[in-house]
Computed example of a mutant assay.
Amino acid sequence: MSSLPAPTPWNQPLPEAHPPAGMALYHLPTGTYETRAALAVRGGSFRDKRRFAASVVLIQHPDGDLLIDAGFGDDVADHIAMLPRMVRAPYRQGRTVGEQLDAVGYDRERLQGVLLTHSHWDHASGLDGLRGTPILLNADERDYAAADPDGKVFRSVSQGHEVREYGFDNRPYLGFTSSYDVYGDGSVVVALAGGHTTGSVIIFVTVPSGRRYAFIGDLTWQIDGIRRRVERPWLLSTLADSNRNQLREALLRVIALDGLMQIVPAHDLGSYDGIPLLTHEAATGYAS
């Protein structure tokens, strides 16, 4: 196994953030699918089975709530059937994000949109149960989703949704050259990473306690990629990534941040530890 060279740890002040009182994060797991560690990271074992998370994160914010990704949807079996046979995997479906929001009495009128880390099926499937909720995409990812074969599920589930396109400022953020401050208060900042898909992003979140998170999508599938500084296996990267060099640069930037924030690869279930599940009290008390 060949590790990437260790980047210089981030030693500059962290960007200013002013998250409002009451802002909070919640983890909404929608299911898992199974793969071998050997197919997830270089040096992984075929004996090591990994449960890949299909999870959603709810950001509660006074200016409107956001979902990060959409997880598995009502028709996940049909969505998986749309994939090439070689990439289908055994899966376990939980409650969809829509079902979980409704079960705790969440008012969907508070949802400003679904902010996708990227448009692949296992991040977009749950859009089928979020009718009327806008989708937030940047121009590069919108183009990718419209044309790439891996955007087939997205093109199906996004029908009937308003797609709101956001742009990036030429403002560096934690080593990334361009960023988008969603609320204008530094609490949720989107950085263009690319590499996995052409418009894939990292979503940096700071909550009122000062704790910081980096939701890195599929920059790496498992936290091993950060902690052991390893990339995807060559064949899997060739199949899954749009630009391996760009992906490696972004991965090294995030590795340099390890220890300064909680890094959450979308499919690493353990990386969500500490982010609470959404309860009735949290869903309804926030609005009051």
Rank of each mutant, 00 (worst) to 15 (best):
P7H: 05
P7M: 02
W10E: 09
L14Q: 09
L14S: 07
E16F: 10
H18P: 00
P19I: 05
P20W: 12
M23A: 15
Y26G: 03
L28R: 14
P29L: 09
G31D: 05
A38F: 11
A40M: 15
A40I: 15
G44R: 12
D48F: 04
A53K: 01
A54K: 10
Q60G: 12
P62L: 10
L66Y: 08
I68E: 03
G73M: 11
V76D: 05
D78T: 08
L83K: 12
P84M: 06
V87G: 09
Q100P: 10
A103N: 13
G105N: 11
Y106T: 03
Y106P: 00
R108G: 04
H118W: 13
H120L: 14
G126Y: 01
G126D: 09
G129K: 01
T133A: 05
P134H: 00
L137N: 08
D143Y: 05
V157Y: 07
V157A: 05
S158Q: 12
R164G: 00
F168D: 12
R171P: 05
T177P: 00
S178L: 06
D181V: 09
G195I: 05
T197E: 14
I202F: 02
I202R: 00
F204T: 00
F204H: 14
I216E: 02
L219P: 03
I223P: 00
G225L: 03
R227L: 11
R227A: 12
R229N: 10
L235F: 14
L236W: 10
N245M: 13
R248H: 13
E249L: 03
V254L: 05
P265M: 04
P265H: 02
D268E: 11
D268K: 03
I275Y: 02
L278Q: 01
T284C: 11
G285F: 03
Y286N: 08
